[in-house]
Design a protein around this nucleic acid. Sequence first.
RNA 1: GGCGCCGUAGCCAAGUGGUAAGGCAGAGGUUUGCAAAACCUCCACCCCCGGUUCGAAUCCGGGCGGCGCCUCCA
Length: 490
Amino acid sequence: MPLRLYNTLTQTKEPFQTVQPGKVGMYVCGPTVYSNSHVGHMVGPVIFDTIKRYLVYLGYDVTWVVNITDVDDKLIVQAAKDGVTVKDLADRVTEDYLHCLHQLGVDGIDHMPKATEHIAEIVEMTQALINKGFAYASSGDVYFDVTKAPEYGKLSHRDPEALQAGARIEPTAIKRNPGDFALWKGSKPGEPAWESPWGPGRPGWHIECSAMSMKLLGEHFDIHGGGLDLVFPHHENEVVQSESYSGKTFATYWLHNGLLTKAGKKISKSDPGTVILMSDLLRDHDPDTLRCLFLSSHYRRPIDYGPGRLDEISRGLEAFRSLFDRFERLTGTSFFTLEAPTRKSDEEKVASSIPEIDEHRTRFLEAMDDDFNTGGAFGELYELVRALNRFADTHKLETAADPEALAGYRAGVVVLKELTQILGLFLHPRVQPEATGDSLTPKLLELLVNLRARVRKEKNFALADDIRNQLAEMGVTLEDRPDGTGWKIS
RNA sequence: GGCGCCGUAGCCAAGUGGUAAGGCAGAGGUUUGCAAAACCUCCACCCCCGGUUCGAAUCCGGGCGGCGCCUCCA
């Protein structure tokens, strides 16, 4: 089944067809860098990272652009409050953003253009829009005249008339129509400013995305994404100015991710009570757990962030972690260094000896083809884990020397790896004490485990259990398996 | 008020015409010295009321409830 995706523009699921054969241009609106990232800011990047991974898996050559808006009214206000320059503030917040992306395994972004580095393109575009009669200069500002574009409202499915009549839009003396939006804003003294034909000023909010996306991806590209809250006015304005400028379709598909809520209310920078800083979460939670929070349901649906939610997900992920440990014990190979196909075209090579594995793999891919149904895909992953464990149990892989069965098991795990890679999950092992430079803890635990093994051999189970219980209180779990005792720190 | 989304088990969640994936929690079992892990089994009349249909969670109409956007927001 071919890939189909839901397009906000047409409000239907459409078959995926690229502008250029084999190539995909994808633009996702990034942050305005005036305050550190909260959880909500990571939803989009993780989802579109997964979308890119899947498109690459399908064989597309994907170019993904995420912008950084580093000049804007909010930045000016915040920088003044902090007593720093707009640039310093922007740099600091951008660094935090990049750090969060990196932690979450969002590594597929090809370009991260900054608004301040594209002033020339923005000015050029603004001028062209004036020349074409779509925009006008007024008191040092430049506005887009929404009455000049009959299609205005097509993305957010709003009636332009109704928008014009909107009582909440303040009409001003310098705007022709209440719905007109700024392409260029004249600056007041002391504000960041660039020279322009209309005097010193800075870009309006929407124009930088048009200018940078078209520069890097061409005037007509494939996918434009962002949070659902950006549909209007941001994306609506982007389409109208871009298409008025180029005379071409701007983006073919508009994808919008659902917003993260806390206790049912949207998490928003302008509602401080809801903000959960990403950097805080990353301190206490595994990146895979956070990725799963975003991927466990369909991307267009809202996700509610509750206190126990992440722990619940993490407990579920234990099944995978146990399997990775078991796999390493059985094969001596780490799941994390295992090589698995990164392209779907390689599928013949991985046809495994366990029939259900292939079945779940097929269903996983069908779910992804259906508008990136990561929630459905996820269910198949759990089924895969169970099938793998069942296989290992049935063939008594721990105790019986059965090279053929072991090879089959290994091939099945390769399939698991192939699929988890698509979701960007389990790319790296969890941080264990060895990795943090504490080499003593593992050695001490080995010592305890060995001593306890002797005690158990002597059938002194009271002492053995006492050791296990006390370790459990410290957060160390012991597992006595047929082939030895393992430990893990929870 | 306008536009849009959503309402599936205690919780999270997939499924968009043929009698309900998966995860967490819970119950029972296999295994184990006992546990843990793993495996097996059990746990839903799909918000309500009409309608279409041989047949609806799934389509249509009407309610009720929740959310988003209409203003800066991922």
